[in-house]
Amino acid sequence: MPDRDPPAATDDVRDLARDLVATPSHADETAAGDLLERWLRGTTDAAVTRDAHGNVLAARAPGAEPTYPPATDAPTLAFVGHHDVVPPDDAQANDDGSYVVGTRDGRLYGRGSADMKGSLAALACAFRDAALPADGPRLTFASFGGEEVGGEGCRAAIDDGFAPDWAVVGEGSTGYSGEGVTDVAVAHKGRRASTLVAHGRAAHASQPDRGQNAVYRAGDAIVAVRDLDTPRAEVLGHDLAGTVAVTGIEGGSAWNVIPERCEVTVDERTVPGDRADVERAAGEGVDWQVEQDLPPMACRDERFADAVLAAARAAHEHPDDPLGDGDRPPRPEHVVKPHATDAGWLAARAGTEPVVCGAAERGEAHTADESVSLATVDRCYRLYRRVAGTFTLD
């Protein structure tokens, strides 16, 4: 791989990132998908498609004419992102509905800059520019819609047959092992949101024995949740600890009425291979309902995880990287993330070995002044390009 970026690559990454951030995609993702599809068709030799779910998909193949869907069952490496965002803060949107976007102090500001249009631009440009080794996998690119509402686009694509062998998902992994360092997440927790619904019988509060107090039943369920064992998992030597917590309770209709219904909300952070037995808190008069279940992720392919880590370390050694320090560049590490991404769906439903690696720093996504470091976006471009150019099937 060359020591320097291809001519104008940094400008391309930054221009595409800015254009994506400026394009609204919280209520309707069509315009952002259109932009990305046009860019891929106009600047790459890849086979590009837009599926029925609004996902943007493309493929390249070493030494072969690209097709999408790929024409053979040869192994595939995927660069994965999403182009939807959460609703903008008032200060992040103009009166006409367009997004406010700006650059200052080396950072790109605007809704979606961190989560994850900065990294999405880096993924797209690296997909275009990577020199694919003859003994390497096919390279695909996927930008999904609906990630922020439970991974709708990713799940639909998997149902349609999207199943890469390996994937680099460009969600944030910067700042875990050290400030500004872009690490490689080999696992993350999932999230299961559920509700315990306690049923009772209403009565006048002056004669409580004539009713059945749903709040009391809910209280017993809360105690059961509090006493649950939470699972742990180990992924490539890293420990993940699950959690479970009651996060809300609502019941009763008036101060003088024995409540006939009470709902308890439960937030559970799951780990690969195991989860808390929340259902045990249900019982007589108490039902358990799962509202959302986002799967955890684990990469079990140590060779792939190490290849991405080597690319991350090489990217930090680039002469233009502002964090480089002569003979002592920052040293990225394998880390774990606390929250779910589309990597969980790929691991759970498609059998993919994914890692998460991207420009966003911890705590930056979904904020009123969301931003991303442009130098880190440049670094991610180099990182992604190196992964595609060096990872082989051997």
Rank of each mutant, 00 (worst) to 15 (best):
L132F: 12
A187R: 00
E317Y: 00
A298T: 08
T76V: 10
Y109Q: 10
S143R: 05
G161Y: 04
Q92Y: 13
V85S: 12
H318L: 08
A163C: 12
R385S: 13
D220T: 08
C125W: 03
C262L: 09
G136Q: 06
L36A: 12
W39R: 10
D327F: 06
P231H: 08
R349M: 11
L236E: 07
T270E: 05
G54S: 10
P69S: 09
C125V: 15
P259K: 08
P6F: 06
N55Q: 10
D394P: 05
V149G: 07
A114R: 00
D160T: 06
K337M: 07
V21M: 05
Y384F: 14
E65Q: 10
A122L: 07
F162T: 06
L323T: 04
A59T: 10
A233G: 12
T43V: 14
E152I: 13
T230R: 02
A305M: 09
A375H: 12
A347I: 00
V181M: 01
A350Q: 02
E302N: 08
E284D: 15
N213C: 08
T195S: 06
L228M: 05
V286A: 11
S194P: 01
W166P: 02
E234W: 05
A311I: 02
V356E: 00
E370W: 01
D287E: 15
A368C: 07
V244L: 03
R379E: 09
G118I: 09
D325N: 09
P2T: 14
V372P: 01
A130T: 08
V336T: 15
C125M: 09
Q292N: 14
H83G: 06
E148K: 05
L323F: 01
T247W: 04
D165Q: 04
E370D: 03
V181T: 04
P7E: 15
D96T: 15
G118P: 02
Q92K: 11
P24M: 04
V197N: 03
D209V: 11
V80E: 03
H318Q: 03
A307T: 13
R385T: 14
V278L: 14
L132S: 07
G252F: 00
V149I: 15
C380P: 04
L108Y: 11
G324P: 00
V278C: 09
Q92T: 13
R104Q: 13
V21E: 00
D267R: 02
A22D: 03
R191E: 12
A187Y: 01
L393S: 06
L228H: 03
P296R: 04
D227N: 15
A185K: 01
A218H: 00
V278E: 06
P7I: 10
D3Q: 13
A202Y: 01
E353N: 01
V387R: 01
T367R: 13
H339D: 13
A64H: 07
P332L: 03
D267H: 09
A281I: 10
E279H: 14
L309D: 07
D11I: 10
V48Q: 05
C125Q: 12
T44W: 08
A134G: 13
R331F: 00
D306E: 15
I249A: 02
D320Q: 07
A350T: 04
T49R: 13
A59E: 07
Q292K: 14
V264C: 07
D394W: 03
H188Q: 08
R210M: 12
D5M: 08
G389C: 05
A359Y: 01
P69C: 01
L77A: 07
A22C: 03
L383P: 07
Q207E: 14
A114V: 11
R300S: 12
E317V: 02
A202T: 11
A31L: 05
R138G: 04
